[in-house]
Structures are given as C-alpha cells and as structure tokens.
C-alpha cells in the first residue's frame, strides 16, 4: 500500500505577521470601501449631497453670526451717550450745559453738534439729500455727544451717568448706544442657540442618512456576510468595510459641505461689501478659518463613523449563515 504523504498543517502566522496583515487589511479595506462608493456613483452622490447640505446650512449660519458678533464687538468700545436738546435752546444755554457735563468726573469728552451740521451730515450719509432739501425747517435738534471715561462705560456707572444727564435742563432725550447694543447681543444669543439647535437636528439627520445608507449596504450584502462568516471571519472583520464606508461618507461629505459654505459666503461677500461701504465701515466678511474648516471636516468624519457604527452594531452579529 502506498504511504500517504501528509500535508503540513498551515501554521498560524506569528503575532508580528498578523499585526502587519491587520494594518494591511485596514488599508485595503479603506481603498475597497472608497471603490464601493465609486461603483455606485448615483447613490453615493445623493448621500454625500444630503450630508453636505445638512452640514453646510448650520455652518453658514454660524459663520454669519460670527461676523455679526465681530461687528458688534467693534462698536462695543463706542459706548457713547447722545443728548438731544430742546429745539429752541440758545447758544449760551448750550454752553452752560456743556460745561456742566464736562465737570462730571465720568466724562471724557463733550462734543456739540449744531443742528445744521447734524443735518448736513445726515444728508450726506443717508442719500436722502434731495428729499431733505425741500424741508422748510431743520427737523433735527441740536445734539451733544458725550464720551464717558473708559471705566464708566460698563454697567451701572453708565446708567447712573445717563440718568444724571437726563436731569439736566434743556435736555430733551438721552440715547445710550449701549442699549441697542445689548439688545443686539441678546438677540445674537438667541440666534446662537437657534443655530445650535438647528445644528444638532441636522447632525442627527446626517447620522440617519449615513446609518440608512450603510444599513441598505448591509442588507444587500447579506449573502456575502453569511459566506464570509462561514469561512471563519469574525464580526470585527466583517464590520470593517462598513465602518470605513461611514468614514468616507463623513470625510467626503464634510469636504463637500465646506465647499458649499465657501461658495455661499463668497457669493454674499460682494453684496455685503457694498452694503458696509455705505456706512464707512472697514468691516470685511470673514470666511471660515482653517481651524473652523478642519473642525467641520472632523465633525463630519465623526458623524459618519458614528452613523455607520449605529447601523452596523448588532446587525452584523445577527446575520448568521443558514
């Protein structure tokens, strides 16, 4: 009888080899899952666009809000108080009012703006020059602009100063620039919260979009998963391409979102420039910084990974060959 030549059993690779194979497998799966997106271009583009739009919207709002806050910060150090005097106040009376104000230790500077100068100024700045030309009387009152010392620009001292100025003779109305600034800040806080809430909801929708797309992919590959399990693949091995799929959705969706944000902001940059030039402001619409751009893409990657993980989690272990 012929002696049988037994095959040498294949030795399990050592730890170093297995580790290198592990890294190699990660790289291969990374490329494989990118190729998968490329092979279903229509579905991939739809998913990526949904992710991009969902992320670009709150990002645009956030950047615009940032710009708004920048503007109000510039105004923050104005903190001026404007006094509108009674229309018929004489030069002499005005001089005495000015003197009284200048004596206040909290006042840095007092500037008197005669009614005709205020009117000229307004004509030039507002563009309503021709219209105002037709008026018989100057509708503007004489004005005194008070700049408080720096230490008096904040909080109660400013309000006390305003109240004391209000009590002076011939003063009709006192306007504290701070007031509308504070209102603006309060409003911007509300807007901020709203953007945050919108952002959270849209991030959630990104999770759902990625999760749904990965879930469909898993369903389509059910047979394949069963076969791979039959060959001895662990759940982790099978999970890997799906998680990388989520990573690519996140990365590409994030880049696309950033692109959209830049397109939108560059699109409105010119009109805002025209608008602010009317106000003699040196304000310039800020685009997202490098750090903000990177954060957007990182956040997108995290959402993609989390979305795919939620879809993959448990679903893979439930699929068993039969």
């Amino acid at each position: 009888m012929a002696k049988t030549r037994h095959q040498q059993p294949l030795k399990r690779p050592n730890l170093k080899t297995r580790f290198r194979a592990y890294v190699r497998d990660h790289l291969r799966v990374l490329l494989f899952s990118l190729g998968k997106l490329y092979r279903t271009p229509f579905a991939s583009i739809m998913t990526l666009l949904m992710i991009a739009v969902a992320l670009a919207l709150p990002t645009c709002l956030y950047v615009l809000l940032n710009n708004l806050q920048n503007v109000t910060n510039q105004w923050d150090d104005a903190g001026q108080i404007t006094l509108f005097l009674d229309s018929g106040t004489s030069e002499k009376q005005i001089k005495s009012v000015k003197q009284q104000i200048a004596n206040n230790e909290n006042v840095e500077q007092v500037v008197y703006v005669p009614a005709d100068i205020a009117l000229n100024d307004f004509k030039q700045r507002s563009g309503f020059g021709d219209l105002l030309e037709g008026l018989p009387d100057n509708p503007l009152p004489p004005t005194i602009v008070v700049t408080p010392v720096n230490s008096a620009k904040k909080g109660n001292t400013l309000y006390e100063l305003r109240n004391s100025l209000q009590k002076l003779a011939h003063v009709d109305q006192v306007q504290l620039d701070m007031q509308w600034l504070q209102r603006l800040q309060a409003i911007s806080k509300i807007i901020q919260r709203t953007i945050f809430a919108i952002g959270v909801m849209l991030a959630l929708s990104v999770l759902l979009v990625v999760g749904n797309s990965i879930r469909l992919d898993i369903e389509n590959r059910r047979d394949e998963i069963e076969v791979t399990k039959l060959i001895g693949a662990t759940d982790r091995f099978i999970r890997r391409p799906f998680l990388y799929g989520g990573l690519w959705f996140g990365l590409l969706g994030g880049v696309l979102a950033l692109l959209l944000v830049f397109i939108v902001l560059l699109g409105i940059r010119q009109p805002t420039q025209e608008l602010v030039s009317l106000y003699n402001s040196n304000f310039k619409l800020m685009l997202p910084s490098f750090k903000q751009s990177l954060s957007l893409i990182l956040a997108s990657i995290l959402l993609g990974l989390l979305g795919s993980w939620l879809a993959v989690n448990r679903r893979i272990s439930k699929i068993q060959p039969s």
Partner: peptide, 10 residues
C-alpha cells in the same frame, strides 16, 4: 479570503 481573515503575510 480565508488567508486574509487569518492574517497571513502577503
């Protein structure tokens, strides 16, 4: 595939 799963060298 079975060799990839088991982590063999290329």
């Amino acid at each position: 595939l079975p060799l990839q799963i088991a982590g063999f060298a290329q």
